[in-house]
Design a binder for these strands. Structure first.
Lengths: 344, 344
DNA sequence: TTGAAAGCGTTACCAT
DNA sequence: ATGGTAACGCTTTCAA
């Protein structure tokens, strides 16, 4: 059985002071004489005392716990993002209670769990909160921030920080256009989230503006999905020589599909991915892709959340940061408008 | 400011019962009449009441929180493992307080944090606890389980569950031997952990037994490290035609190094990885690798931990499970002993 | 079956 | 600067 840890009362007895004084010693910026402070420290050290965060949280109504909900993503930048959040929050004295969901909307239950533990704030990564959940949450005035997923249907009281995927899609489209291609296509992810739509929308916008047709194929976010979608495109009527994939993994699948048809990259087909994951830089792929500015995004997310927790923010904050194109070798060099593929 | 959530007293007032009764309704298996139970439920529903886990944890000395410490690993099976732990623990009603470390030994501070929140148990993934930390922890009788990392210097009171890497290394060595190669090499990871050593030891053992020499090169766990280590090997005096890499990522690097020397895989060089990560199955690599039985390992870890928490275990448990070789196309087919590469 | 009251380990207020 | 005491929201014992 788990043993009880030593409490402030025992430290007080050993140090020959009151329990209140022990508490004060462990509360930052409270007046205690240097002498007693040392006595208490020594006693605490000797007994291995550390204040009980649960009791503290109970009385202070602040737990220093942040509830983090992340979507079940095998493909994405999960480790990177998670690590950075944990580190960043930790540096500010906060701890992370972690939950994850596989749905497009957070399980209401997860949020209730967080509420039971009286978390100081909630970060939702790559997924959404249902209106029900939001309504319930709004009663408690607990800061919520959505990271990299957004919904328009919100009169809501949460913050949003994410990548400007519309701009990203546009940039990618314009880059492919500038490099000169004949037929443009886009392989979309499986998520019905706002963010991926934005990305696709930006991409299409570039061509729509100029009256150029683009083919859209649905991948499902996986390698296989990308492979198959690319196959459909490349074996179709007007095979593209420029494909933008909404995720790196799909892009790798698309690249391998092209190669299996004896098309070289980037000579016959240019491919652009999204996310700049580890795999993108692998030698046989050397994928041109889009890097989201996670460092800044996460720093802003944490700052915003803590500012809200500490009452320094009144109204919802909404921040979009643009990423940057990482140019590798999967897009053909400029001005090479000829020599493109017109038949299978 | 965060608002106070509704408490049991308010529910009691609305339902016209005592606060104790409300508590009983939310404590499983406590005798309450059907009629009052319904009244309380209705009142609770109406007010949106959920018991405060902190207060409950304080009085019960059980928080239903598990502290999880994971090493900062970009390459490994981080997402998979983490997801499975969270899901598995969640299914048993436990929550995860997450910390991570980049060191070979867990930061003592992390453990103290867990203690402050009075976690019911601690899972340490892929790293170790210092003797100091262990000494401190042992005072509290709090269940600890080490996952996939182990130290021999332990008189200790923690459990251990992991992959039998020695057996894995042996299996891999024997497989490469069976397929017939001339010169065997091993690229090791950067960690000075027990587990990777075991793996390497098993591999070497196979050849030592038979008086066959093996070359050992240190990678650092990264793609680049694998690439460079393979380069050193392949450009060296007696270049290997069979290379075992202690991680998939290094194996990919090694594969690309071989290709850059115009060596094909597996005709000129066989390569075996470790972990069966997503990248291993990528088309251009189709890497033969080792899959650790994470599902079972994690299930056992959780079961052991919860058994200990509930007092069903008296002495430390130590469990090793063997993985399985995933045969793809990076190792040459059997009995093809000739045609191996003897010079650069 | 239910209610009153003690206690979990803190912090915060009011004295001194 | 320090000590006494109420309060945080819950579970649990003891009475009724």
């Amino acid at each position: 059985m788990k043993k009880k840890v030593v409490n402030a009362m025992e430290v007080a007895r050993l140090a020959g002071v009151s329990q209140s004084t022990v508490s004060r010693v462990f509360s930052p910026s409270t007046a205690v004489s240097e002498k007693t402070r040392h006595r208490v420290w020594k006693a605490a050290e000797e007994l291995g005392y550390r204040p009980n965060a649960l009791a503290r949280g109970l009385i202070m109504n602040k737990t220093k716990i942040i509830g983090l909900i992340i979507r079940d993503i095998q493909n994405l930048c999960y480790p990177e993002i998670l690590d950075k959040f944990i580190k960043g929050l930790r540096a500010k004295g906060y701890h992370v209670l972690l939950a994850h969901t596989e749905n497009n909307e957070v399980n209401q239950d997860e949020v209730y769990q967080f509420l039971e533990y009286n978390v100081d704030g909630i970060i939702v990564i790559d997924t959404l909160l249902s209106l029900n959940t939001l309504a319930h949450l709004s009663k408690y005035n607990i800061p919520i921030i959505l990271f990299n997923q957004y919904t328009e249907a919100s009169s809501c009281s949460y913050h949003f920080v994410g990548c400007d995927n519309y701009a990203a899609g546009k940039d990618i489209g314009e880059y492919l256009l500038k490099q000169g291609h004949h037929q443009y296509a886009c392989i979309t992810g499986h998520r019905n989230g706002f963010m991926s739509h934005e990305c696709e929308k930006g991409f299409r916008q570039v061509f729509q503006q100029r009256g150029i047709k683009t083919a859209i194929e649905a991948g499902d976010g996986t390698y296989e999905g990308g492979y198959k979608a690319a196959m459909r495109l490349l074996k179709g009527g007007s095979p593209p020589d420029a494909i933008f994939c909404a995720s790196d993994l799909m892009a790798l699948g698309a690249a391998d599909a092209a190669r299996s048809l004896n098309l070289s990259i980037p000579e016959h087909v240019s491919i652009v991915g999204f996310n700049d994951s580890v795999m993108a830089s692998l030698h046989p792929y050397s994928l041109t892709t889009w890097r989201q500015p996670f460092d800044e995004l996460i720093a802003i997310t944490i700052k915003t959340l803590l500012d809200d927790i500490d009452g320094r923010i009144k109204s919802p904050v909404s921040i979009l940061l643009c990423g940057v194109l990482i140019k590798r070798d999967s897009v053909r060099a400029s001005h090479n408008t000829d020599g493109a593929l017109n038949s299978e």
